[in-house]
């Protein structure tokens, strides 16, 4: 925008220090030998060992992973359908209500979403467990997916779809062969968003889980309520590492695919 000043450099440095130092401190202390989390007693990987032997954490991690995979996949299908209905569906009865229901969960406080779903599950006498968490997570993440996908659907040139239809595609073939490849990055981004939202959710899962299923955030929350624990530090470090590797890889892949796409387009134009 304009020349980069000392003020800018200072605010960026302090800002990023603020964003990253707490996580860095957490990572450092996960390698602390002492059980007293605030006193440094030398380097050790002891807490990682304890973590791996802790059955309760492993079980919770497995439940969380299954819930996240199933709910984000369901949410991606439903969210993409919803986005298609909103952008391409034309006019239909109750369209305003429909778009309202897509946007409302995005701003709804989690405590209310959780409470209302729990009351529903009790009213219809559905046993609480993995199924109810999946239903709850699918419902709020499909709205995020639908927002991400519809922004992509709005921005792309509709005449390409029409050309496919003119050339003899059925609407479903046009969607599969033309629309889907174009919106694919948004669909994938939506899935990733739904997946991380599900992995991360504490409040809605606490309401809908019931005694039979415990997810990792519920487990973490109940053990840190009483204070800092070195095992949780180790667990956090692992989770931070997974996210960092995932996000950086995804961004490198998408950068490379954008570059390739630009090259293809340029080659096509040059050929024509």
């Amino acid at each position: 925008m304009r020349r980069f000043s000392w003020f800018n450099l200072t605010s960026l440095t302090l800002g990023f220090a603020f964003l990253y130092l707490p996580m860095l401190i957490l990572i450092v202390y996960s390698f602390n030998a002492s059980k007293l989390v605030t006193v440094w007693a030398g380097f050790s990987t002891r807490w990682y060992g304890e973590l791996i032997r802790n059955e309760a954490f492993l079980d919770a991690a497995w439940v969380t992973l299954r819930v996240a995979v199933v709910s984000s996949t369901l949410a991606t299908v439903l969210g993409t359908m919803a986005a298609h209905a909103l952008v391409r569906g034309g006019r239909f009865l109750g369209r305003t209500l429909f778009s309202g229901m897509i946007y409302a969960p995005l701003v709804m406080p989690e405590v209310i979403t959780g409470l209302s779903l729990l009351l529903l599950f009790i009213a219809i006498d559905l046993d609480r467990g993995i199924t109810t968490i999946v239903l709850a997570h699918t419902t709020f993440s499909m709205c995020y997916v639908s927002v991400v996908v519809s922004s992509r659907l709005v921005s792309f040139d509709r005449s390409i779809e029409e050309a496919a239809l003119d050339l003899g595609c059925t609407p479903f073939e046009a969607f599969r062969l033309v629309t889907l490849p174009i919106i694919a990055p948004a669909v994938i981004a939506g899935w990733l968003l739904a997946f991380t939202l599900s992995l991360d959710d504490l409040v809605i899962a606490s309401f809908t889980a019931g005694p039979s299923a415990t997810t990792l955030p519920i487990k973490i929350f109940s053990s840190v309520r009483l204070g800092v624990s070195p095992e949780i530090n180790a667990l956090s470090t692992i989770l931070i590492a997974i996210v960092a590797v995932g996000v950086i890889t995804a961004s490198l892949i998408s950068k490379r695919s954008i570059a390739r796409q630009m090259q293809d387009t340029r080659a096509a134009i040059a050929g024509a």
């Binding site: 964003l19 957490l26 991380t196 991360d200 950086i248 961004s251």
Partner: peptide, 27 residues
């Protein structure tokens, strides 16, 4: 990317990380 990365990291963990910093005996 530096600003977005923490957003993908667990909310619960980011809140928790301050417990060890702000405690009476904290960092």
């Amino acid at each position: 990317m530096g600003v977005i990365l923490p957003f993908w990291t667990s909310f619960l963990i980011r809140v928790y990380s301050w417990m060890g910093i702000l405690a009476q005996e904290g960092v």
